[in-house]
Amino acid sequence: MKAVIFDLDGVLADTVEFHYLSIKKVAEREGVPFTREMNQQLQGMNRKHIMKEILKPSSKSYCDNEIDQLAELKNKYYIDYIQTLAPGDALPGMVDFLEELKSKKIRTAIASSSSNARTVLENLGITGYFDIIINAKDITRMKPDPEIFLKAADELEADYRECAAIEDSEAGLKAIKATPMFSVGIGEEPFLKHADLYLKNTKEISLERLSTAFINSMKRN
């Protein structure tokens, strides 16, 4: 294993809740329902696509410009929330895991659909752990398309088969599974059990556990 590629929201930081609260504000403003279950289903998608999805129940017709404006409003709310993040707010176990990867000179990348990924990393104080940061502005196709993971591996100059990629969303896991990479699913959603390595939470991750599962997978293949 030469490289590990990370999703951001729900893997390194508990920003999924911030996305939910931001979208919920827009939904309430427009008089459409929005639940945590819907938020889970929309993880990994860009904000314009999210706006189109949540506005479907509305009796109002929205032009592209109006959807763009609402997407920007959602982003404004989200930026306000992520400003509350500080060093120490990374999800449990992840900084220790990043330290392990760094000590073994395993290359790392972020593959996040969020255009605010760098801000989140800077606020958490963990930007320096990553060799490459790929976000929505660097790609043309969103998850579940695998483009973002393939681009991250290409930027790292790593063979896809020597990469592990970590996700907590269904769209993200589908994207990884569409590549030759080793997939890691973190969280309690049932679909995550389809990953090559399934972990209930970030506390369970370690380089030893990942390496063992990765090697066993290589032997089976």
Rank of each mutant, 00 (worst) to 15 (best):
H194I: 01
S58K: 12
G128I: 13
E37I: 07
K219Y: 12
E157G: 12
Y81I: 00
A71V: 10
I133V: 15
E157C: 08
L197I: 09
L42T: 10
F214K: 01
G31Y: 02
L207N: 05
K174P: 01
C163Y: 06
S217D: 12
L192H: 13
N135K: 07
M142T: 12
V4T: 10
V32A: 08
F97D: 02
D131P: 08
R29M: 13
C163P: 12
I166W: 00
Q41P: 00
S113I: 06
D7Y: 07
Q41T: 03
K76H: 09
F6W: 07
I133N: 05
I82W: 03
I215D: 09
R118Q: 03
L21C: 01
L70K: 07
M51Q: 06
Q43C: 07
I126Q: 14
D168C: 14
T108C: 08
P146I: 05
R107A: 04
K143N: 07
H194Y: 04
R209L: 15
L197P: 10
L101D: 04
M38E: 14
T127D: 14
Y198H: 15
T15Y: 00
I148N: 04
P87W: 12
S112P: 06
N201H: 13
I133G: 08
A3F: 08
A178D: 13
F214Q: 04
R107W: 01
L42V: 10
E72T: 09
I126E: 11
I166V: 15
S115P: 00
Q43E: 14
Q41W: 01
M1W: 10
